[in-house]
Simulated scan of single mutants.
Amino acid sequence: MTSTFKAVSCVLLLAFWPVAASAGDMGTGRRLAEAQCRTCHGLDGIAKIPVAPHLAGESEIYLQAQLKAFRSGKRESEMMNVVAKNLSDDDIADLAAWYSAIKIEVEMPE
């Protein structure tokens, strides 16, 4: 692959990326997570109830997209639609920054 082709491919990918993720503040995200998310998803991003997914180490872009989908009602969850409806874009970016920054390790079974 030529360097020109690679550069054009990157530009096209970025131009058509469906969600523009803004960089959030991890400290603010941690405080929001302590106040609103820890009961179900844990402050550490490891779910505390069976119906909640783990958030630790998820992609920041993915987390922002899902929270915005819950906020708009595009994605439905009785709990999450209520929680997300009052989140601002900055709140969402901050929460995504916090949970995506958590490092997790995976150990494969032998």
Results as ranks from 00 to 15, higher is better:
L95I: 15
G57Q: 09
V82F: 04
I49W: 00
R31K: 13
S72H: 01
I104Y: 05
G45D: 04
A65G: 13
A52G: 02
H54Y: 02
P53D: 02
T4W: 05
G42E: 03
V51C: 03
L87F: 14
S9I: 12
P18M: 04
R31V: 06
K68N: 07
M79N: 12
P109Q: 13
A7T: 10
A35M: 11
A93M: 06
A15H: 05
E34F: 08
S88I: 03
M79K: 04
R75H: 05
T39C: 00
A65C: 03
S59M: 10
G57V: 13
S72I: 02
M1W: 04
E34R: 13
V106H: 15
S22A: 12
G73D: 00
C37A: 07
A35V: 06
K68M: 08
A35Y: 08
L14E: 01
L13I: 09
K103S: 11
S3L: 12
V82R: 09
L14G: 15
D91I: 10
I92T: 06
A97H: 09
E107K: 14
L55D: 01
R38K: 10
V19Q: 09
S3W: 03
K68A: 11
D90C: 03
T2D: 14
F5P: 00
S72M: 02
P50I: 08
L95T: 05
S59I: 02
L12D: 01
A47S: 15
G45R: 11
G29N: 10
L63D: 01
M26V: 15
L67K: 09
A15E: 00
G57D: 04
S88V: 07
E76R: 14
L67F: 14
G42K: 11
N86L: 07
A23P: 09
R71H: 09
D90Y: 03
E107T: 15
Q36N: 13
H41A: 09
N81G: 10
A23E: 14
I61F: 07
A96G: 09
A7N: 07
L67E: 00
K85S: 14
G27N: 13
L87Q: 04
A47H: 07
Q64C: 06
F16M: 14
K48D: 00
R30I: 02
A101M: 04
G57M: 13
I61T: 15
A15F: 12
I92S: 07
A47C: 04
R30D: 01
A93H: 01
D91C: 03
G24M: 04
V8F: 14
G29A: 11
I104C: 08
R71A: 13
A93T: 05
L14S: 06
V106N: 12
C40A: 11
D91M: 11
N86E: 05
D89A: 12
I61L: 12
S9R: 15
H41P: 02
V8Q: 13
M26F: 00
H41V: 01
V19N: 10
D90W: 02
I102P: 07
E105K: 13
S59C: 14
Y62E: 00
R75L: 11
V11D: 01
A96K: 13
N86H: 07
Y99K: 07
L63V: 12
D90T: 15
E105F: 09
E34C: 06
S22K: 13
F70Y: 15
A33L: 06
S59E: 02
M1R: 11
L95R: 08
A20K: 12
G45L: 06
A69G: 05
D91T: 04
W98T: 05
V11Y: 13
G73L: 00
A47T: 02
L12P: 07
C40R: 12
Y99H: 07
